[in-house]
Simulated scan of single mutants.
Amino acid sequence: MRKNIVAGNWKMNMTYQDGLALVSEITNMVADETLGANVEVVIAPPAPFLHSIGKLLSEGGRIHLGAQNCHQKESGAFTGEVSAKQLQSVGVEYVILGHSERRQYFHEDDELLSQKLKAVLAAGLKPIFCIGESLETREADETFDFLAAQLKNGLFHLSNEEFDQVVIAYEPIWAIGTGKTATSEQAQEVHAFIREQIARAYDAEAAQNTTILYGGSANAQNARELFGQPDVDGGLIGGASLKSRDFTEIIKSF
């Protein structure tokens, strides 16, 4: 059975002290909830906080540590960058790749993301690979062609064994930070399409085993309906992950 995952992407928010306090609150709240063995929680704080937050999480054991990005090289003269191997050494288990903000603001393309993907997998980490269309693409009725191309160019060069480690996050760009959210029917339609593409590229078993998250303004109010769709396996949560009560309510949606 594929995993259900709720992953909190803090982006460039929180001070160190506020981040530690937030994690302590979430850890205490989640520890009091009965989560199925199939549910995982991931927190992806800013890079400077990873080591300290990782130590807090290891004590509770209910939440896994994620990173928001990594460099494609294992080491070298790349000032300001962090490698997958370095992330692994401080307890990171998941790495977000291909987020629309990285694609838009830092011009990350399929070729670069392919290299990062290989680096993450080589370090024994699990990528959360993001895909998603803009409002213009959706209004032009080109959503499925666009997503099919992102999947083909970004992921489908992986071997079966490599692909088994991948989590996919569908993030409609028009719904990120805008307050707009895809309806549960829209989310299900796209997630089912993604699963169909996986089956074509690999096989039906791979399609059924792949965790596909929704990542567009999911919150405590709509998470239960979204996660109730047969092909929606959880969420990549932005703003709501910065509030302990909201994030915990989203986790409890399972």
Score class of each variant (00 low, 15 high):
Arg2Gln: 06
Ile5Glu: 03
Val6Pro: 09
Asn9Ile: 06
Asn9Tyr: 07
Trp10His: 12
Lys11Leu: 06
Thr15Val: 02
Asp18Gln: 14
Ser24Met: 00
Glu25Thr: 07
Thr27Cys: 07
Asn28Ala: 15
Val30Pro: 01
Val30Arg: 14
Asp32Gly: 15
Asp32Arg: 13
Thr34Gln: 02
Thr34Pro: 01
Val39Asn: 06
Val39Gly: 01
Glu40Asp: 15
Glu40Tyr: 08
Ala44Gln: 04
Pro48Ser: 12
Leu50Trp: 13
Gly54Asp: 04
Arg62Pro: 04
Cys70Gly: 14
His71Pro: 11
Glu74Gly: 02
Thr79Trp: 13
Ser83Ala: 11
Ala84Pro: 11
Gln86Phe: 08
Gly91Ile: 07
Val95Lys: 15
His99Tyr: 09
Gln104Asp: 06
Asp109Gly: 10
Asp110Glu: 12
Glu111Trp: 02
Glu111Val: 10
Leu112Gln: 12
Ser114Ala: 15
Ser114Phe: 00
Lys116Leu: 01
Leu121Glu: 06
Gly124Val: 00
Gly124Lys: 02
Leu125Tyr: 12
Lys126Gln: 13
Phe129Asn: 09
Gly132Glu: 00
Gly132Lys: 00
Ser134Leu: 09
Glu136Asn: 06
Thr137Gly: 03
Arg138Tyr: 04
Arg138Thr: 07
Asp141Ile: 13
Glu142Phe: 10
Phe144His: 12
Leu147Arg: 00
Leu147Glu: 14
Ala148Leu: 10
Ala148Phe: 02
Ala149Gly: 01
Gln150Phe: 10
Gln150Cys: 13
Lys152Gln: 14
Gly154Ala: 00
Leu158Gly: 01
Gln165Cys: 10
Ile168Glu: 11
Ile168His: 11
Glu171Pro: 04
Glu171Gln: 06
Ile173Leu: 10
Trp174His: 14
Ala175Phe: 07
Thr178Met: 06
Thr178Cys: 03
Gly179Arg: 06
Lys180Glu: 15
Lys180Cys: 03
Thr181Lys: 00
Thr181Glu: 00
Thr183Glu: 13
Thr183Ile: 07
Ser184Met: 10
Gln186Ile: 14
Glu189Val: 05
Glu189Asp: 09
Val190Met: 11
Val190Phe: 14
Phe193Tyr: 15
Ile194Asn: 08
Arg195Tyr: 05
Arg195Ser: 10
Arg195Pro: 10
Glu196Val: 09
Gln197Cys: 11
Ala199Pro: 09
Ala199Met: 11
Arg200Trp: 07
Arg200Glu: 07
Asp203Asn: 15
Asp203Leu: 05
Glu205Ile: 05
Glu205Phe: 00
Ala207Leu: 07
Thr210Leu: 05
Gln221Met: 08
Ala223Tyr: 08
Arg224Ser: 09
Arg224Thr: 01
Leu226Gln: 12
Gln229Lys: 13
Asp231Met: 03
Asp233Glu: 05
Gly234Cys: 05
Gly235Asp: 03
Leu236Phe: 04
Gly238Ser: 07
Gly239Met: 02
Leu242Thr: 05
Leu242Pro: 09
Ser244Asp: 12
Asp246Tyr: 07
Asp246Leu: 08
Phe247Gln: 10
Thr248Arg: 12
Ile250Phe: 09
Ile250His: 10
Lys252Leu: 04
Phe254Val: 12
